[in-house]
Design a binder for these strands. Structure first.
Length: 511
RNA sequence: GGCCCGUUCGUCUAGGGGUUAGGACAGGAGAUUUUCAUUCUUCAAACAGGGGUUCGAUUCCCCUACGGGCUACCA
């Protein structure tokens, strides 16, 4: 029987979710939706020592901003609730005990010091990989080496213990990975991983397998850092008697630093000048702030589009994808095997593409709140017209103010070096004439202004081109901007004439 | 160190036993826009190395190098 596709995104609330995590969530989401399946959000908070307050909310909020939705999870509930592992604590122990029962796990009573000493000894003896395994467990304090009455006594006395997996000595474990094919590992290379900790919590390995089984997960799509422990998980399914319904695995290549080596990390963002997190995050302990894509003016769909193409491609030249197009085109087979260096320049390009696609009407709505926040009151139609003019010049919506502030407030500072260069000969006279001429016309549309401008220049024996830039500076304060006569028309006759006269005064004082 | 995974332009990638090895970003040059941005044209840029297999390998196999991950009572 074909099972309904069910995938999960299962982060640990140890800090903000970085873009690599978002991509993992995205691929899970795309896969689920492509196959009409379910997407769950499970919080893996089995390590209380690393729990960070606010991280869970951050994760939920980030994914919502990205447009990744869930069918079940901590925030939306569902038939397999609770979805927070700390709240499922009581469920795990029975499975660990079941494994002891069947001879696939055992109690271990070793202290941290004893474990350290064991590893030190092995290192000193030049053992290639010092680990708690089929050889070393013979020399440690566990239910395999201790007499059964002592084990019973220790357990009854409440001695601290962990439950370890008993990895067979000489077997080959095969992991079938949807991206990499067969991965073979010898059990002799594996160690007796702790499944159940002395604090009563399961480790990732146990909790993960138990929950995926209980929640009927069909596909585990996760980062490549989990590939080395996948054989352990396969063994766990086998020994728990769940191999028939074991999920299929897909281990995603990692996101790498744009420069140098290694996987993309928290530090890289602010070091290299781009966000690594979807949303801004303030560390609750250090109060250190890490920037976010949202706060940097990125459109979530652009961010998602970029992420989707980092490690996956549709096999066609298409690069711009809406979420539904991504769902349509997505397939695990087309995920690449090697890690991808993150490219912030391309991310900006994606945002620019999306910004262009956004209507001036929608941009105006966003921009209007910024305008209002600054205390200005302009009709939305005016703001929309400004957006129309400025849109092509921006890469981010948060650049609008610096690009367009002069549409809303009068310029009061000018690039005087430039003015000095241009403010000579017939120019001052021309500007004075222009101000008067502009003031005298009724038709203040771009074409009429342009005609008037040219005629005025000719009257003063100057080429129109020669005075275009000083005119722009006079009315906008900036040396570059949108089509000059349209801009003039939009700002309106009264304000333009006023600005011109103000600028002429200013320019005269420095000339 | 050990184990596992990987390696096509600077970056993301397509391709696949015989190709002028394609696209995009970034970069260079030019044109348009009497500004900037846009747009257009154009240039430069890659199969890690060595062995096989083969009539022929960038493509398949092996080795080396390099890169990455893992190696906790963290996930």
């Amino acid at each position: 029987m074909e099972r309904k596709v069910r995938v999960r995104f299962a982060p640990s609330p140890t800090g903000p979710l970085h873009m690599g995590g978002v991509r993992t969530a995205l691929y899970n989401y795309l896969f689920a939706k492509k196959h009409g399946g379910d997407m769950l959000l499970r919080i893996e908070d089995t390590d209380q020592t690393r729990y960070v307050l606010g991280a869970e909310n951050y994760i939920i909020e980030s994914l919502a901003w990205c447009g990744i939705t869930f069918d079940e999870g901590v925030h939306v509930g569902g038939p397999h609730a609770p979805y927070r592992q700390s709240e499922r604590k009581e469920m795990y122990k029975q499975y660990a005990l079941q494994l002891i029962e069947s001879g696939h796990a055992y109690y271990a009573f070793d202290s941290m010091e004893e474990l350290d000493a064991m590893r030190e000894n092995l290192k000193a003896a030049n053992v290639a990989s010092p680990q708690y395994n089929y050889i070393t467990r013979e020399g440690m304090k566990n239910s395999l080496t201790l007499p059964s009455d002592e084990v019973a006594r220790r357990l009854a006395a409440g001695d601290a213990y962990v439950i370890r997996m008993k990895i067979p000595r000489k077997e080959e474990v095969r992991v079938v990975d949807l991206i990499r094919g067969n991965v073979l590992v010898q059990t002799s290379q594996m160690d007796d991983k702790v499944l159940f900790k002395s604090d009563g919590m399961p480790t990732y390995h146990l909790a993960n397998v138990v929950d995926d089984y209980l929640m009927k997960i069909t596909h585990v799509i996760r980062g490549e850092e989990w590939l080395p422990s996948a054989p352990l998980h396969v063994l766990l399914y086998r020994y728990l008697g769940w191999e028939e319904v074991m999920p299929e695995f897909a281990h995603l290549p990692l996101l790498l630093k744009p420069d140098g080596n290694g996987k993309l990390s928290k530090r890289d963002g602010d070091r290299l000048g781009f966000p690594v997190f979807p949303l801004q995050w303030q560390d609750p302990f250090t109060e250190e702030i890490s920037s976010g894509y949202r706060e940097n003016g990125y459109i979530p769909a652009a961010f998602i589009n970029m992420l989707a193409l980092l490690g996956w491609n549709p096999g066609t030249p298409q690069e711009i994808f809406s979420m539904s197009e991504l769902i349509e085109a997505f397939s695990i087979e087309r995920i690449s095997k090697s890690g991808a260096k993150f490219d912030s320049a391309k991310t900006k390009w994606f945002n620019q593409q999306y910004l262009r696609q956004t209507s001036s009407e929608d941009l105006a709505k966003i921009f209007a709140t910024e305008i209002q926040a600054k205390g200005f009151d302009y009709p939305i139609t005016y703001i929309q017209a400004v957006c129309e003019l400025v849109k092509e010049k921006a890469q981010f919506s948060n650049e609008f103010w610096s690009l367009a502030s002069y549409f809303f407030e009068e310029p009061n500072s000018f690039d005087m070096d430039l003015v000095r260069k241009k403010w000579k000969d017939a120019v001052p006279a021309f500007m004075a004439n222009l101000a008067a001429d502009l003031n005298s016309i009724d038709q203040f549309d771009a074409l009429s202004i342009e005609d008037l401008f040219k005629v005025c220049a000719e009257k003063n024996g100057i080429s129109a081109g020669a005075v275009m830039q000083i005119f722009r500076i006079a009315i906008s304060g900036q040396a570059a901007g949108p089509a000059i006569f349209e801009l003039t028309s939009l700002i309106g006759k009264e304000r333009i004439v006023k600005r011109l006269n103000f600028a002429i005064n200013q320019f005269n004082t420095i000339a």
